[in-house]
Amino acid sequence: MDNELIAIVGPSGVGKSTLLRILGGFIKPTEGEVILLGKKVTRPTPKIALIHQSIATFPWLTALENVKLGLKYRNLTKEEEDSIARKMLELVGLQGFEEFYPKQMSGGMRQRVAIARALAADPYVLLMDEPFAHLDELTAEGLRQEIYSTLFSQDTSLKAAVLVSHNMNEVVELSDRVFVLNGGPATVVGEVTIEMERPRSPRDQKFQEYLDLLYKLLTPVKKKVKEG
């Protein structure tokens, strides 16, 4: 389905980040395969962009130069690079900050730079590994409110986004579908489709019901007693 935001949730150590990296081709799966638009994914590709939990920008490059890195593989002219990079910074709300270095920016702004860099690469899928975990709550909330419309605006090529998160409020607020991983070895113990209008409010009764459902699925799995 187009423009879908999928969340993966599960207890610590269950393998959420590993799954995300398998989806991106960063880790080879021991079993199974990843298919993107009919083609097998065997190594990292700009078509599947990863956003890190610990926000990764390059301190020796300005915001604009950081974003341009995402365009390098396309071999564009300097002018084209420049104009796309500027457009992406504008999309994430950083116009006017093109010449700033990451050091001069807050954590929230740096993560926007990282998102703009990923979007500049023209990806079909965006992988987000707890993208708001290192931001203070106010900044995170601000970014959350914008992210959905930013990602799926008509200026991006994005078809889907996958979010790994520990924060259930965040998950219910943002996702279209949630996969719950649990147990060891981990399996998908639940798939929840969130059918609520956006913007979603935590005060909404339905919001709370989804939260309850997710927490229920996340309770520790009792070990099965061997039969026979």
Binding site: P46, I48, A56, F58, Y73
Partner: peptide, 23 residues
């Protein structure tokens, strides 16, 4: 080098020279 940097380089399919000079 932070492992995130390796992932970004791989992810963005940077060429050898781009990796060396930019990162």
């Amino acid at each position: 080098m932070p492992h995130e940097y390796w992932e970004v380089m791989d992810n963005l399919n940077l060429s050898f020279w781009q990796r060396m000079s930019k990162i």
